[in-house]
Amino acid sequence: MTSRVRRLFGRHEMVLLGVTVLLSIVIGALNPAFYSLQNAFDLLKTSVPLGILTIGLLVVLISGGIDISFPAIAVAGMYITCTLAIDVRSLDHLPALLAISTAIGLALGLFNAVLIHFFRLPALIVTLGTASVIRGALLEFVGTRTITNLPPSIIAFSRTNLFEATLANGASAALTVSILFFAGVAIAVALALRYTVIGRGAYAVGADLAAAERVGFNVRRIHLFVYGLMGALAGLVGIIHASIIRNANPLDLDGLELTVIAAAVIGGASITGGRGTVTGALLGVALMVIMDGSLVLVGLPSQWHQVFIGLVVLVSTSITALRTRSARAGEIAR
């Protein structure tokens, strides 16, 4: 029993949980509105796209790779699908749109995987290149105009709530249904990482690619899996994002990769591969969302957000670096 708890919450996760709770207390003390049900639901809502992407990136990081093209992929999935649905009215069913966008994302993710695996190219530079290709192609060939009249099924989706409540002060709070996608992805990926051979293979490849190959893991399949999953999840997020902000802007989501990388790294994923858990990633997302959403509550103008995220990335990666260094001290001299 205790071992199960320990597995779910390692030391890093416990620290993170503590920091998150502490931060919530501080913000709540500064502005009691933080504790409202409405705020909680709002935070959950903003956490959906960020969370799904972070979990996708977590798997990529575990396998020793990186991807910074997923915002471009998400936008491509979203915009192409919406354009298509407006032209072809018969496609306008939510499952069909989600499937199309996810499929577009999957295809683009697999394209990344092919370049990274078959030509053994550095993932950072490859995905920098594909991001620019995807965005350029989207704006050149599909369109530049923001779609404000979204397909009705997406509008309907954005209005579907899992839970609604009218508060004492007359305001209403609603929990978006898209949170179910987030929960589903988190659970599915957590199970896949723990209970499938390909998931364990991602950890093995991330720790030592040559040894994983020697043991007999199919590295090609693992690379296709991690980058394909990242792309597919980005495609899914595209539609969810459109439904949250109720438009589809092809210039959107630029720079989101930084927030996502920050969340994953804060959650304990190692940029050098082999380490990371879904629990940690979720806590990383929670911390980012609470921090970001609360800057407004404590009265900082929105321009400070980027400064804050930058600082959080620097501080959290520094703490991780200092901790692994002290763990390794004395290793050199036997």
Binding site: V197, R200, G201, Y203, A207, A211, A212, V215, G274, R275
Partner: peptide, 23 residues
């Protein structure tokens, strides 16, 4: 694999070899 447990390191070949999907 330093990031995996002793149990998993021991069993890893049999995982891969039998072409299984689930652990």
């Amino acid at each position: 694999f330093p990031n995996l447990t002793v149990a998993e390191n021991l069993a890893i070949n049999s995982l891969v070899e039998h072409r299984r999907t689930l652990v």
